[in-house]
Each structure stands twice: as structure tokens, then as C-alpha cells.
Amino acid sequence: MNIFYAAAIAAIMGSGVYLLLSRHVVRIIFGVALLSAGTNLLIFVAGRLRSTQPPVIEAGTQVLDPLAANPLPQALILTAIVIGFALVSFAAALAFKAFQTLGTVNTSDMNDAEAMGSPYASKEAKDA
């Protein structure tokens, strides 16, 4: 079971890294989204996949059934999903704004920041 999960996570992470290496900002954001999804699955597997019994304490007992699933990874993943969603949506908005302002989403054409104070650029940076 674990080996299938491991292979699936490896495939997702691999695709994520491949997209991250692109020069196209939108692809890079997709890459980051895939990597964070892969990481969530990694936490899930790290919490052991052995039981599907819900982690609910039965009425009248004080402790969780030792055969129940581990609830903590789900809490961690839930937090990570929310944070990942917020950051990816910010990144998407940033990419859109950059496209509107800079007129490109190709990172090799984005050099407004590097041009400031560069010994190779004679013009003074416009925004400073």
C-alpha cells in the first residue's frame, strides 16, 4: 500500500519540480501548488496508513480505540491546505498584476529589480 502512495507522491513531486523549473510564471505557480499537494500527502503517509476506523472516542469510554486512524496528520494537513491555498492564490494574483504591469510572464524578461544599481545598466531605475 505504502509503495503505491510513495510512487504517486514521487510522481506529483517530480511534476511539481519540473514545472517549477519553467520560465513561465503561471507554470511555476502550478509547480508550487503540486509540490504543496505532494507534501500534504507525504504528511498523510508519515502518519501511517493502516486503519480506516474514524478516530472518535465511543460514549462511555475515556481513551481512543488503539485501532482507530491517527487524527493528527489530518489536522496538520488541514492547516497546510489552508495556508497553501492562501499563498497560491496570492501568487496567482501577483502573477496577474505582474502581467498587467510588466506585460510579460516570462521570467527572463523580468529584470526591473535587477537593473537597479547594476553596473551594466546605464539608465537610472525608473521607480526608485
Binding site: 502573477a95 504591469t101 510588466l102 521570467t107 523580468m110 529589480a113 537597479m116 531605475a125 521607480d127
Partner: peptide, 8 residues
């Protein structure tokens, strides 16, 4: 412009 470039 430079800020958006740097922020990405």
C-alpha cells in the same frame, strides 16, 4: 514594476 518583479 521592480517590486512586482522582486516579489515574484
Amino acid at each position: 514594476k521592480s517590486q512586482l518583479d522582486g516579489a515574484i
